[in-house]
Design a binder for these strands. Structure first.
Length: 1013
RNA sequence: GGGCGGUUAGCUCAGCGGUAGAGCACUACGUUGACAUCGUAGUGGCCACUGGUUCGAUCCCAGUACCGCCCACCA
């Protein structure tokens, strides 16, 4: 049956993919050979509700190339596949879906029902991306598909949390964190995107208490006084006027002489009936603004640090949706209590947090509304730095002047949630943190010592830079979809029968049962062994122990009574928060291998060999995997046994052809499935490999994919030609190279060997582009362009049999070597040609080496191809029709050249379209070309334009003399001979000789032309 | 502000201490025993700029300019 003219990806890929899956070709250890090492790769788990985009296609292509390459080599190969539950992202998708289908909201249906919905959604859409990966040709072990919320994963996550908690690596605390008002959860620093936006800066006057005033003196650099005036206020600047309601102080730099007279004095906080002190701190920059900074501890990271240093109260002004708080006691009550606290009344963190110091008129307002209102009110109170503006009444036409607050337009960096895209608020809340400073050491050491290698090197620098400046990692999220934090809380016993107000005892345990046990241990120490524990639901709102903590109420009792009568229960409840997705992702390599059980898979495949991932998640994922696993695995093991992976390959982000980020709104998204449908998965894969130079941005150009689709077609047709000529008839797949004697056959085998070496070297160095390039050049540039053409005459000659054998072998090599890159078309070709005993996917990767390279054949074929090139070039330049066969005269011919000609005459004559060769002097009116060891004349009297030939020769001579001049210049420089390595000098000399020889011949030809012309 | 990277053909990018390569695009010719998703031959580059090291620099070093990315709390 004759082969089709083209490979049909749509039909063949589906069929082959099904076959691979059915035969479990990607199963762990498939095709493994004795004595070979393990090779394991963990897929970066895509979001379970996600779908394949170009980044995935790229990333997974590289993984598959490596995995197939190792599997063919007989390594014990595992490519672990799976998906991530992706907390925020998934919850967002499901909530959006609920809204779209007019179902009850998350809060309306409650936690349990909502989680059921998410699981439902996961079951329904969770397979999408996995199926898309199959279309790409990914050869994962599909039977081992993992999910971060299934199987042993939740247990592993819990165990790690408990272990880290017990080691003091995880702690809970009230800290200023990044708060996402849309999702109403804390997020980590990494989930915040800082973007420059147009903002404004306002200037307010905070009046000194008691009507005091001072002399305000400004000086320039030379110390000359530039301004001197009496002031009864201090001027502050802010981009967030609404937060002034929570100010705890005004800070100035200790060296700032302008404010020296008023340090320690109190100022009136506008709109607030409160006095706050002027304090000093290193933070304010005297050269910026007025040099005085309002300190709002609860709503700004810098201010928070200042407030901590100065022991200032941090008054929270915003609710979880970032509107002005409307909870708690009336403003009058709150402010009275705040004054008392300022005056030194004892208080607690919990009480300060409960105080709502937002005046009634602002309560419940959105941030921006509140901002406008505050500015208006301060302006009305005459406390804004203002400017006079002229205003025209449109009705009466009368003009009047109006005071307007000075508003400076200013670019400000504003934080946005990377998922929600809303403005993030610093918020003072209780959260769980990983004390990263305690676990960063081994992660740094592992890379420093080379136990883990990060490529490219710049990625290593980024890694170090981040880890060396690491901040605590906020791991709790106020979400529902995720791993719930394994901590239960109960009342803290202050004295028998009493619980301490605002305090709780945490019981961190791997299960409810163990939590109960821990609680029993704690409470029985006070009440004996007959205490009863009851699990209750966490109730949103203030802590139960705060219910008596009314504002302003004298704190007579520090404790609350606990009912410990017989039969009563002590209630404990589980922390409602879930863990950051990346906490569980951080355990991906060990978790998927069955940890904490010591499974055989863990023994065999851990540490994993290579992680291939985008450079954008080096912090999110790579660094955290390093830190967590090194902290969690048996510390007696050496670092090399604990690192999650030996090599990390970081690649750039995928962009469109112009380098723009792909986005739906820009309409420049290249959907990998579209590309696969149009060009085939192989074409997309080869494009991915060819683009994969280290670092930088990856620009997708569909034209490039089309080009590599053509490459597949090219190979297909070379095989079709071979098949038509029966090269595989009776052919068994050869492990060794065939015996051959014909130069072209020997040469092409050597080329295959060179290509193998190059591909092996390139892949070992993760240079997928170099490997792809080598294969492209070999298959198209050597096999198709030359060898197939040589084979045509050879098939009719005495070497027909060995040529058929060689061609079968060479094309087999093309399929094998290309298979990791373009698995579908090669598998199809493999099945279509020859008698095969195994699928190509499990064919052995060749091991032949330089022994296959025959230097004499190489040199001879170089001579042949050069000669053919020159004849073709000359013919084209003087416009000899391609169809016309010409005669050629050898005017000089060394014995070696004569042999080379004789042995390859059929090839040369066919490809250069030469009728006959004679020896003798150059006939009149011929063009001349010079090959090493030979000069040829092509008699073309009457066919060519003498002038054209002259100009051709002159042009060539010009080029030559330039080269000669350069070489001469070098060789005549005495320093060159003295300093340059021997072989470089020798090479230059040889080159010079050859060029001069060539030039001499051409000059002679030119002279001859001059005679006739 | 800190860090990292880039600047090579019209475009997208390799490369390397010995005066430059690929693919695409472009031009001319072409149905030559597989392939027009093709073939043959071409056009096209002071390798950003300025210094330095060197016998020799596109390559190494320093600086400049421009571009990009990451991180960052200037109210």
């Amino acid at each position: 049956m004759a082969m089709e003219k083209n490979f049909t990806p749509a039909e063949a890929e589906a069929r082959i993919s099904a076959l691979w899956i059915l035969q479990k070709v990607g199963a762990a250890g498939a095709n493994k050979k004795p004595g070979r090492p393990a090779f394991s790769v963990m897929i970066p788990p895509p979001n379970v509700t996600g779908s394949l985009h170009m980044g995935h296609a790229f990333n997974n292509t590289l993984q598959d190339i490596l995995v197939r390459w190792h599997r063919m080599q007989g390594d014990d190969t595992l490519w672990q596949v799976g998906t991530d539950h992706a907390g925020i992202a998934t919850q967002m998708v499901v909530e959006r879906e609920l809204a779209l289908t007019q179902q009850p909201t998350r809060r309306e249906m409650g936690r349990e029902a909502f989680l059921a919905k998410v699981w439902e959604w996961k079951e329904q859409s969770g397979g999408t991306i996995i199926n898309q990966l199959k279309r790409l040709g990914a050869s994962c072990d599909w039977d081992r598909e993992a999910f971060t919320m299934s199987g042993n994963f939740p247990d592993a996550v819990t165990k790690v949390f408990v272990d880290m908690y017990n080691k003091g690596l995880i702690y809970r605390g009230k800290r200023l964190v990044n708060w996402d008002p849309h999702f109403e959860t804390a997020i980590s620093d990494l989930e915040v995107e800082n973007t420059e936006v147009a903002g404004h800066m306002w200037h307010f006057k905070y009046r000194l208490a008691g009507g005091e005033s001072y002399e305000y003196i400004e000086k320039d650099e030379t110390g000359a006084v530039t301004l001197r005036e009496m002031r009864d206020y201090i001027s502050i600047a802010t981009t967030r006027p609404e937060t002034m309601l929570g100010d705890g102080a005004v800070a100035v730099h200790p060296s700032d002489t302008r404010y020296a007279p008023i340090i320690g004095k109190m100022v009136h906080l506008p709109l607030c009936d409160r006095l706050i002190p002027i304090i000093t701190d290193e933070y304010p920059d005297p050269t910026f603004g007025s040099g005085a900074v309002k300190i709002t501890g609860a709503h700004d990271f810098n201010d928070y640090a200042v407030a901590k240093r100065a022991n200032l109260p941090c008054y929270r002004l915003l609710d979880t949706r970032a509107a002005m708080r409307a909870d708690g006691a009336p403003y009058e009550v709150a402010v009275a209590r705040a004054r008392a606290i300022a005056a030194g009344a004892p208080t607690s963190e919990a009480e300060v947090d409960a105080l709502n110091l937002v005046p009634e008129k602002y309560r419940g307002l959105d941030r921006l509304e509140a901002r406008a209102q505050v500015v208006a009110d301060i302006t009305a109170a005459g406390l804004a730095v203002t400017v006079l503006v002229k205003e025209i009444d449109e009705e009466t036409g009368s003009e009047h002047l109006r005071l307007e607050p000075v508003v400076e337009a200013k670019k400000i960096m504003q934080p946005f949630g990377d998922r929600s895209k809303v403005v993030i608020e610093p918020m003072l809340t209780d959260q769980w943190f990983v004390d990263t400073s305690k676990i960063v050491g081994p992660a740094l050491e592992a890379v420093r010592t080379g136990a883990t290698r990060i490529m490219p090197e710049s990625g290593e620098k980024t890694y170090f830079h981040w880890l060396e400046n690491i901040e605590p990692w906020c791991i709790s999220r106020q979400l529902w979809w995720g791993h719930q934090i394994p901590v239960w809380y109960g009342p803290k016993i202050a004295a028998i029968g009493f619980a301490e107000i605002g305090a709780r005892v945490p019981f961190c345990a791997a299960s409810e049962k163990e939590a109960e046990k821990a609680a029993l241990d704690y409470y029985s120490a006070f009440y004996g062994s007959d205490v009863n524990i009851r699990f209750t639901e966490f109730k949103a709102g203030p802590e139960p122990t705060q219910r008596d903590l009314e504002i302003g109420r004298p704190r007579r009792t520090a404790n609350l009574p606990i009912d410990t009568t017989e039969g009563a229960f002590i209630e404990i409840y589980r922390d409602p928060d879930v863990l950051d997705t990346w906490f569980s992702s951080g355990l991906w390599p060990i978790g998927t291998l069955g940890w904490p059980e010591q499974t055989p898979e863990l023994q065999t495949y851990f540490p994993t060999s290579t992680l291939i991932t985008g450079s954008d998640i080096i912090f999110f994922w790579v660094a955290r995997m390093m830190m967590m696993q090194l902290a969690v695995l048996d510390q007696t093991l050496p670092l090399e046994k604990r690192v999650p992976f030996k090599d990390v390959y970081l690649h750039g982000l995928v962009r469109d052809a112009k380098g723009k980020k792909m986005s739906k709104s820009l309409g420049n998204v290249v959907d990998p499935l579209d590309a696969i449908n149009e060009f085939g998965a192989d074409a997309l894969r080869f494009t991915n490999a060819a683009m994969a130079s280290m670092g930088g941005v990856l620009k997708y150009d569909p034209a490039r994919i089309a080009g590599y689709r053509n490459f597949g077609t090219k190979l297909w047709n070379a095989c079709r030609f071979a098949e038509m000529n029966g090269v595989w008839d009776g052919h068994q797949t050869q492990t060794g190279a065939p015996k051959a004697s014909q130069t072209a056959n020997l040469w092409i085998m050597g080329e295959a060997a060179k290509t193998l070496t190059e591909v092996n070297g390139a892949l070992a160095a993760y240079r997928f582009d170099t490997a792809a390039d080598a294969l492209y050049k070999f298959v198209w540039g050597r096999v198709c362009d030359w060898y197939v053409e040589f084979a045509k005459p050879l098939f009719d000659g005495p070497h027909a049999a060995e040529t058929r054998q060689t061609m079968a072998w060479v094309l087999d090599q093309c399929m094998i070597l290309l298979h990791p890159f373009t698995p579908f078309i090669t598998e199809e070709l493999w099945a279509t040609t020859g008698a095969r005993t195994t699928l190509l996917v499990h064919q052995d990767w060749p091991t032949y080496g330089p022994a296959l390279i025959d230097a004499a054949s190489d040199a001879e074929m170089a001579w042949v191809t050069t000669l053919i090139d020159e004849v073709r070039s000359a013919r084209a330049q003087v416009h000899v029709p391609v169809g016309l066969k010409i005669d050629i005269v050898a005017t000089t011919l060394t014995p070696q050249a004569r042999t080379a000609w004789a042995r390859n005459e059929a090839l040369i004559r066919r490809l250069a379209r030469i009728e006959t060769l004679t020896e003798g002097p150059a006939p009149k009116g011929s063009i001349t070309l010079a090959a090493p060891g030979a000069t040829f004349a092509i008699p073309l009297a009457g066919l060519i334009d003498i002038a054209e030939e002259k100009s051709r020769l002159t042009k060539t001579l010009d080029k030559l003399s330039k080269e000669i001049a350069g070489l001469n210049g070098r060789l005549t420089n005495p320093n060159f001979a003295a300093s340059a390595p021997e072989e470089v000098v020798e090479e230059a000399r040889t080159n010079l000789g050859a060029r001069q020889d060539e030039a001499a011949k051409l000059r002679a030809a030119l002279a001859r032309l001059a005679e006739i012309g």
